[in-house]
Amino acid sequence: MKLYDYILSPSCYKVRLMAAIAGVKLDLRPVDFHPGREHKTDPILALNPAGTIPILVDGALILTESSAMLTYLAALAAPGWLGDATPADRAQVEQWLAFSPRLTASCGGARLHDMLLMPGDIGALRASATRALRELEAALSARRRRGHSFLVGAIPTIADIACFPYVALAPDGGIDLGPYPSIRLWMRAIRGLPGFIEMPGIHRLHEASAEPAPEIGGTAG
């Protein structure tokens, strides 16, 4: 399975993260998004006329939407992550998958503007991000009241993976996550999942690894 990938893209990271958790090996094909704008070149446009990445190719199947890729990877190798135990759960997963592009447009737009100099109305992007983050915070605080750490049902789902990266990287676009305690704890729960991998700007949980033993034979001092 081949992923057309960019190391700094939160959407590509969603797919890498889900694959790592599901134990699916990806053949990564780096795309020179910045500074090369390779995603707008003919070979990539031939695969995805929209000129966006990620692109996931598995045999004859070509997917160009990250949420569909999450669904595909989960259905293949980690069906519990589809979160379809009940009709209501299934609908809520769909709800969050449909919500996630708002995060991409707002938090992601602010990040591209501030970090990679892409055009945009930064004030409007941040205001729109604040509205989306407030909705997410309210939903997660309601989940915590019921003893749950994730967006849908009792276990993590593709809904969490779809929303996590652009939220975690919101500070890259000058958006402070300080006002969102439930989001902070939810991100921590995701970072603590078995198989979790990081991307630049999202640090691993150093606390999860035990205090390393001192080096034997090391020359201190």
């Binding site: 700094l8 970090m115 890259d172 700007g201």
Partner: peptide
């Protein structure tokens, strides 16, 4: 990408 990865780890 390797060098962008390293630098963006520093950015935060």
């Amino acid at each position: 990408h390797f060098q962008q990865m390293i630098f963006v780890q520093d950015r935060s």
